[in-house]
């Protein structure tokens, strides 16, 4: 029937999704370790109406057939993993990664046991552990793991120190003696588009054939990457960029609404052919 109506309404729903995405980014402009989400649009389905050979007339520049598009949709959702600014908090349990990598957290798996999740949000806390000592956990209580994949336990009476290469040590509050607590695990996700957000600033990677190629546990931090104790990473949402995008999406939405209105008028005219 009226193709204009279909194309514009389909596109308006895609633009609505983009608006939702911008709203999510803006809402998280102050969320520690939040990574902004972006998306890409694509045009959908072109149908070619066949034309008879007699249509091949002089002056025609394209092959036979009249192509017709049917609007657009959102095709991919991407994470922008770029570095955000670090903010000093002076809390010993706040860690930030400068450079690449993510912290690994053990979250409960659906069928029991735990599964790894990854985060850039380093506002951790020390929670009492049933076997004694205190366990380094995220702000939702999930244990942060060390290089061996085990929870990080700080014995009572010791203070956690994190060195820039990720080494963890405990400093006795009584006599300044130092004990080794291993290293915090930092993973390099080679293909950040495979990260799937599960909320609470945590990402998981679904089952893929060559996981070891995608998620690489870093034995030592590469040059230019370090762990900063007493800092957290801010959100990498830039309000200026988001609002610019908002304006452009909103105007595109309005234009589509106009096209829909115009298509409706045309339909009205067809109906009123014989008043």
């Amino acid at each position: 029937m009226n193709n204009s109506m279909i194309s514009s309404s389909v596109s308006m729903s895609a633009l609505q999704k983009k608006l939702d995405l911008i709203a999510e980014n803006v809402a998280n402009a102050n969320t520690t370790g939040y990574k902004r989400k972006t998306s890409v649009f694509e045009d959908i389905l072109n149908s070619v109406q066949p034309q008879h050979e007699d249509f091949l007339q002089e002056g025609r520049s394209t092959p036979l057939g009249f192509t017709q598009g049917w609007g657009m949709r959102m095709s991919a959702l991407l994470l922008d993993m770029s570095q955000a600014t670090l903010m000093a908090t002076n809390l010993p349990t706040d860690l930030a990664i400068e450079g690449k990598g993510l912290f690994e957290v053990a979250v409960p798996a659906p069928g029991g046991g735990t599964t790894p999740a990854y985060t850039r949000s380093g506002s951790f806390q020390l929670l009492p552990h049933p076997d004694g000592g205190r366990q380094l956990s995220t702000n939702t209580g999930m244990p942060v793991v060390n290089q061996d994949g085990e929870p990080i336990i700080v014995p009572d009476g010791y203070e956690l120190r994190v060195q820039s290469d990720g080494t963890l040590v405990g400093v006795s509050e009584a006599d300044d003696t130092i004990i080794d607590l291993g290293r915090i695990r930092v993973v390099d996700v080679r293909m950040p588009e495979l990260l799937r957000s599960i909320g609470d600033n945590l990402y998981v990677i679904d089952d893929i054939p060559n996981r070891e190629n995608v998620v690489v546990v870093m034995d030592e931090l590469p040059e230019g990457t370090m762990i900063m104790q007493g800092y957290t990473e801010a959100s990498n949402v830039s309000l200026v960029d988001e609002l610019t995008e908002l304006i452009s999406v909103q105007r595109a939405y309005q234009l589509n609404a106009r096209a829909l209105y115009s298509a409706d008028q045309m339909l009205g005219m067809a109906v009123r052919l014989r008043a």
Partner: peptide, 11 residues
């Protein structure tokens, strides 16, 4: 219809 499709794909 053609113009509408262009408007739909402004982004």
């Amino acid at each position: 219809d053609t113009v509408t499709n262009n408007i739909a794909n402004l982004n």
